[in-house]
Design a protein around this nucleic acid. Structure first.
Lengths: 230, 230
DNA sequence: AAGGCAAAAAGTGCATGCAATTGCCTGATA
DNA sequence: TATCAGGCAATTGCATGCACTTTTTGCCTT
């Protein structure tokens, strides 16, 4: 091997490749349907094909990549139907997380959830979409962790990354910011009074609304990126 | 490579290895904590280390295998806490599947669910544990499919396989067969009358009860198999 | 006999090589 | 011009090789 490994440190080379490629998929830098050529990726990251191959295999096991035997790998293309099923799952998973959070969060967790949520109100007024997006992610992650269930956490985070390529445009819609905050508020209130059912329902509705907004963009996007697939 | 590939046909060598090793883990032939030596596995299946390595990577991405850098792979050892979280997740997932099934199953699906369920009553009377176990699996799979949601199906099946090594003893308990059938009956009845909430609740309770029975056995088992782990 | 250290053995991680497969290009044929 | 066969380049799939890390073994010290 010629030079030093560039960025994305820590772990084995394979892990670095999984993260590097996975990130590029999740952030939309690599779009659904795009071809993932082992040789080019290996050259791009200055490693041999072996770790790239292993990474592609793992990403395929995670559902982010699709592998066609002897025909290479592509960024996973999901049908509109499967996309819908993932959004629906996401709504159910968030509902579970919110319900458990209402029942199980420690007082510390409740307090910081509330504080951060209130703080984010400023971002709505300022229309700071970028920053709000960051807080939004934080907020949801708090719910996932608040459920105190490692496996549900895993599934939820995994589903969220698989959906990530399809929800980029989610806050571009006018008025979405304020609406999102209101919905968060309903969830927080329910959690604070320990009402699991209400929290679950509010979270489910919240995600459902977001998903409807995203789905339209998403599929158009993917088709434009890879019209010649299959 | 010397001879022909033995059993487990179709797909690439890597896929075959994933299935072969995965099966052995799920069926309990390989126990939690057991060391998975690349060289021996390669020799055992008469392939080179490369496909075995890739398979272990994928199994690790699926959570069935645990990889420690430079220190080899072992069959995933789960803490009692994580095991509990998986059983709880399973209960929630089954609840979702049952709820959706009640709302979405086609009349054909409803009919065959009912028919098979009634047929299995005979197995209870005959105390045919082996056969009942087969029908039990079928029954639950019907619920997962009946939800008409591909992603929830994936998550549920995956979670079930990760739990499989820990529920082997589940029907050994006396009277468990009849109780299980009764619980199934409650679920079926709710589904037949389209009552999603009742079906969900019944399914959640059903799994919760099974999990309590399994958990005790399971952890003892795993510790006995690999007392020297870490 | 117990503890510690060093050398050897074993095993993993990645690179490279080669056979096999695919897909493309070319050109012949209808 | 459209179609299809054949061959070629590109790419994947697997085996092998080598360097490096971890683990074990055996010897020496105390």
């Amino acid at each position: 091997m010629s030079g030093k490994r560039s960025l994305i440190r820590s772990g084995t080379t394979v892990d670095q490749m999984v993260r590097a490629i996975g990130d590029r998929i999740v952030t939309g830098f690599l779009r659904p349907g795009e071809k993932l050529d082992e040789t080019s990726l290996a050259a791009r990251f200055d490693v041999s094909r072996t770790p790239v191959r292993e990474a592609l295999g793992q990403l395929s096991a995670m559902g982010l990549v699709e592998r066609r035997p002897n025909r290479g790998a592509i960024v996973a293309v999901v049908t509109q139907e499967h996309l819908a099923s993932m959004f629906e799952s996401m709504a159910e998973l968030e509902a579970i997380c919110a319900r458990f959070s209402a029942e199980r969060m420690t007082s510390g967790e409740r307090r910081s959830l509330e504080i951060e949520h209130q703080a984010s109100a400023r971002l709505v007024q300022l229309r700071a979409e970028e920053d709000y997006e960051y807080f939004n992610t934080e907020f949801h992650t708090r719910l996932y962790r608040g459920a105190h269930n490692a496996h549900i956490y895993e599934m939820t985070v995994m589903t969220r990354s698989r959906l990530a390529p399809f929800r980029r445009a989610q806050f571009m819609l006018p008025g979405r910011l304020a609406k999102s905050w209101q919905e968060h508020d309903t969830i927080v209130t329910a959690i604070m009074r320990g009402d699991g059912n209400a929290a679950g329902k509010a979270a489910r509705d919240h995600v459902s609304i977001v998903s409807e907004a995203s789905a339209v963009f998403a599929v158009g996007d993917q088709l434009r990126a890879a019209p010649q697939h299959q």
